[in-house]
């Protein structure tokens, strides 16, 4: 049976994965489809296009970081569960 700490770690991991998914599906990722040279041209439009792509990239990177953090939390939860099972088996014997 999972420990309370392991359950909490898994809940936090789930929350981070959900938020990562949210970041991945933000509409800001689609903005570059409209900031290019079919809409406008000039120094500012070029800068806007580059900036929008950079923002989207930053959000994707953040989402990846969140997933990595979630995976780490899930591994720690699994370790806690394994330790609890080992302790239980030792008590029976």
């Amino acid at each position: 049976m999972p420990t309370a700490d392991a359950t909490d770690l898994r809940r936090r991991a789930t929350e981070l994965r959900r938020f990562a998914h949210t970041l991945d599906t933000l509409r800001v990722h689609d903005l570059h489809l409209r900031t290019g040279p079919t809409t406008w041209l000039g120094p500012s439009p070029s800068a806007c296009d580059a900036d929008v792509r950079a923002l989207a990239h930053g959000l994707s990177t953040s989402a990846d970081d969140l997933r990595r953090t979630a995976a780490r939390l899930e591994r720690r939860a699994a370790d806690l569960d394994a330790a609890a099972r080992a302790a239980a088996l030792a008590g029976i014997n």
Binding site: R12, E15, L16, F19, A20, T22, L23, L26, V28, L55, G58, L59, T61, S62, A63, D65, L66, T69, L73
Partner: peptide, 19 residues
């Protein structure tokens, strides 16, 4: 409307706020 209060997500929230 994109918010996550988890302490583990605060770095990601910086990117959201900057965007």
């Amino acid at each position: 409307g994109t918010v996550c209060w988890s302490l583990d997500a605060q770095v990601a929230m910086v990117a959201v706020k900057e965007a």
